[in-house]
């Protein structure tokens, strides 16, 4: 595993929501003090349920939403709330993203080569012949045909559209690719095609992925390290293997027991959580999972969440029950 290419330091993103135009705005805590390290060449998984802040965290790293406090270091630059756009642009060169829904992330009025080469166009390359050639060099790598270059998006199925989106992410030689649920809008029978393609491209181009998904079995097989998020906070992070073998946080355990297996080996004990995630608006200073946690104690309900505890080599969790 290579050196760390992205490190977040207490990265926090808040949104202000106003009940009415006069009142003081409420604080919606989307991402709270996240510390992650992504190493070169690895696939880093980010799991959690909808609304847990995994997409917001990725968007903050990509610069789509402003950072409230904290910072992150990436490709030799440190980015925080006060970073100037010119420095942002330097960092952004190295990052690209593949969105969840290829039906809405591709411009229907562009031909395939225009879509794929758009990042280069934005970077200043205006020669159409060069743009087309660069796009042509990539289409076959993502499993499309050379003749597809002049077609429009509506002629393609979901899986093929996602391939176009992946080619667009690769064209500017970005090193870090943020994949935000890249398979969840696709048919089951093409999931594996897209995952295998991502794995092949990582080998070939030496890419690093930040892989967001709510599909735990996918995360288990594809990622090297992972982080489990709940209501904006990272509950547990570390080597994927270790977390699956020995989940430290009760939320991770519950998530894993909710995986529906096709041919379960044994009758596992299933933890079915009661209730739903609480609102992220003005959260109290406690563990955010406390209301649904089957093992919550008096300590969890009264004391602020402790800092991350080392569970094993490269395996951290934030939980009162583990802190001793």
């Amino acid at each position: 595993m290579g050196e760390v290419i992205l490190r977040t330091n207490d990265l926090t993103v808040d949104f202000k929501v106003k009940k009415n135009i006069f009142g003081r705005p409420d604080r919606l805590s989307a991402v709270q003090s996240v510390n992650l390290e992504i190493r070169e060449g690895e696939i880093y998984g980010l799991v959690g349920e909808s609304g847990c802040g995994k997409t917001t965290l990725a968007n903050a790293i990509l610069g789509f939403v402003p950072i409230t406090s904290g910072s992150f270091e990436c490709f030799g630059h440190t980015i925080d709330a006060s970073t100037k756009p010119s420095e942002w642009r330097e960092v952004r060169k190295h990052m690209q993203t593949v969105f969840q829904d290829p039906y809405s992330s591709l411009n229907t009025r562009f031909t395939v080569w225009q879509i794929i080469s758009e990042p280069l166009y934005i970077a200043g390359e205006r020669d159409e012949r060069v743009l087309r050639e660069r796009a042509a060099a990539l289409v076959e790598k993502v499993g499309l045909d050379y003749t597809d270059l002049d077609r429009y998006v509506f002629e393609f199925s979901g899986g093929q559209r996602q391939r176009i989106a992946i080619a667009r992410a690769l064209i500017s030689d970005a090193k870090l690719i943020v994949c935000d649920e890249p398979t969840s809008a696709l048919d089951v029978s093409v999931h594996s095609q897209i995952c295998n393609l991502l794995l092949d491209l990582r080998e070939e181009f030496g890419l690093t992925y930040l892989f967001i998904s709510h599909n735990l079995s996918l995360i288990k097989h594809i990622t090297d390290h992972m982080a489990v998020m709940y209501l904006g906070e990272v509950m547990e992070c570390g080597k994927t293997e270790d977390i699956f073998r020995n989940p430290a946080c009760p939320y991770t355990e519950a998530l894993m027991s909710a995986i529906l297996e096709v041919n379960p080996r044994s009758d596992r004990e299933r933890i079915i959580l009661t209730g739903e995630a609480r609102s992220p608006i003005n959260p109290p200073d406690l563990c955010r999972f406390v209301g649904r946690c089957p093992r919550a104690t008096e300590l969890c309900r009264t004391r602020p969440l402790p800092p991350p505890v080392q569970i094993g080599d490269d395996h951290m969790a934030r939980c009162h029950l583990k802190g001793k």
């Binding site: 199925s157 093929q160 093409v190 794995l199 080996r265």
Partner: peptide, 20 residues
């Protein structure tokens, strides 16, 4: 087959070629 086994880690996923 496309659903990977939960017990063992796989390096590649079994895939069905082409599209519906």
């Amino acid at each position: 087959d496309t659903i990977p086994d939960m017990e063992e880690k796989v390096d590649r996923f079994v895939q069905i070629p082409h599209n519906v």
